[in-house]
């Protein structure tokens, strides 16, 4: 029953209409497809696109059912912290939430996150994108940040390949954006490595990162 024991990855990608959720979903799903992985995505269309909440369900090597059941998502990628919290109950025990935010999620959630062993990795992707002079590329910054942790089994190099393939205009800016996100993620990884040395010393184990290999 432990989802990490298979190659399946259930991913919730969420945000607000206009934040580029469909593009973000495309970036991950096309990369997975090009790696020969199974892909099923469920997109939001219609009414909810008019400034409302947007949510995509992405299954890598998963079943043909289009939607992910609450309590079973391995990963969430959220362009908006409010939407991340709204959809937090999609997460399974031991899952990982990536969120576009400087502060992470509301502090009152901490006991629940700890109890359910849900890890939150946050990065202010919008601020980074604004700094780069391309505010619309915040979604791509977050994609780079996610790629740095390799939880989806999608190598960063492949993500870049896809980005070049599917983004028509401003590809140079987009590459800067994905790189900025990736470096921010790498920094956290490096710090964690140092920290992990300490943890190993004290006998504690950090949240395990399990890689997925193409089938």
């Amino acid at each position: 029953m432990n989802p990490t024991s298979t190659n399946e990855r259930k991913v919730i990608i969420t945000g607000i209409g206009g934040q580029g959720i469909v593009f973000l979903t495309r970036l991950f799903s096309q990369t997975a497809l090009d790696l020969g992985l199974g892909v099923v995505v469920s997109e939001t269309h219609g009414m909810s696109q008019r400034g409302g909440s947007v949510i995509s369900h992405l299954k890598i090597n998963g079943s043909d059912a289009p939607l992910i059941q609450r309590g079973s998502a391995d990963v969430m990628i959220a362009m908006d912290p409010g939407e991340a919290m709204q959809n937090l109950d999609f997460m399974r025990r031991g899952g990982t939430v990536f969120v576009n935010s400087a502060e992470g999620l509301h502090e009152s959630l901490a006991p629940h996150l700890e109890r359910l062993d849900i890890r939150v990795l946050n990065h202010p992707a919008t601020a980074t994108a604004v700094e780069l002079g391309s505010p619309a590329a915040a979604n791509i910054v977050l994609a780079g940040f996610v790629a740095a942790f390799f939880i989806l089994g999608l190598p960063y190099e492949n993500m870049i390949q896809t980005l070049k393939q599917i983004s028509k205009k401003g590809s140079e800016k987009n590459l800067q954006a994905i790189n900025a996100g990736f470096e921010a993620g790498q920094k956290i990884n490096e710090e964690k490595l140092k920290h992990k040395g300490h943890e190993a010393h004290t006998g504690k184990e950090g949240n395990q990162v399990v890689s997925v290999s193409p089938s």
Partner: peptide, 10 residues
């Protein structure tokens, strides 16, 4: 699989 305590808290 859904954690009712978390859902209620949200």
């Amino acid at each position: 699989p859904e954690d009712n305590e978390l859902s209620a808290f949200i």
